[in-house]
Write a protein that binds this DNA or RNA. Structure first.
Length: 226
DNA sequence: GCACCGATGTGCT
DNA sequence: GCACATCGGTGCC
């Protein structure tokens, strides 16, 4: 029913980001609906933020960030993962909020099916008793930006989708919409440095719900040098 | 829990 | 080439 109004996103990303905690991202596909209540986000700025994809101007990949607010910017990274952002500020000002983690509140069986990990090395033949894959704890289903995309089946085809339109397969609902909405009063928000970012590591633009088990574990940036 | 490491595509310093 | 807005496995404490 009610979706987040577009002008909610017509603000700086570091202002929008904490307000997104508790909001609900839902994706409806032919397989069904999966919805996630957001518990962790990160804000990115444009020309002033060396960690932002839009720091060096517009390219084919980041063009959506330069468009109007309320749209999904999905990118592919590390050769195998997708991450989803919400675009903020008017067209021409490239800002976004990365959706890092959430709690699955609808469609958990479907989310779980999508999160079956690839087995390390499928030996050709003759492994006696194949160990069944361990069950994923519910809190890990969307714990981390790439896991969140996997649980919701978000990939390149959702890049540029309008999150404020009821006609979209992918959309955002305001906080307190979910069944048994347990009051914003209980929600304590904490802030700290962003995850896995080498540049501007001191900017506290990561926001999360204090004490929530679905918040991803903090991994400081690690250099890949041998 | 922590550290290390490999997988893997894409857009550039 | 190389650096990534990452994850899952293994090994160890």
């Amino acid at each position: 029913m009610d979706l987040i109004a577009r002008d909610f996103f017509d603000r700086p990303s570091e202002v929008v980001a904490p307000d997104l905690l508790g909001c609900v991202l839902e994706h409806e596909t032919a397989d069904g609906l999966v919805a996630v209540e957001l518990t962790e986000v990160e804000a990115y700025a444009g020309e002033t933020d060396p960690a932002s994809h839009s720091y060096r101007g517009m390219t084919g990949r980041n063009a959506v960030m330069f468009g109007p607010p309320g749209y999904a910017y999905v990118y592919f990274t590390y050769g195998m993962h997708f991450c989803v952002n919400v675009v903020c500020m008017p067209a021409g000002i490239p800002r976004a909020v990365l959706l890092r983690a959430g709690r699955v509140i609808a469609g958990e069986p479907l989310a779980r099916r999508r999160r079956v990990p690839r087995r390390p090395e499928e030996s050709p033949e003759g492994r006696p008793a194949e160990r069944p894959p361990a069950a994923i704890p519910a809190r890990d289903l969307a714990r981390g930006p790439a896991r969140l995309c996997q649980a919701l089946a978000i990939d390149r085809t959702q890049n540029g989708v309008d999150l404020c339109s009821a006609a979209s397969e992918l959309r955002l609902r305001p906080a307190g919409t979910s069944a048994g909405a347990d009051a914003d009063a209980d929600r304590v928000i904490e802030a700290g440095p962003r995850v896995g970012v080498s540049a501007a590591a001191d900017v506290p633009w990561r926001f999360w719900v204090a004490g929530d088990p679905t918040v991803s574990v903090y991994r400081p940036y690690k250099s890949r040098a041998r």
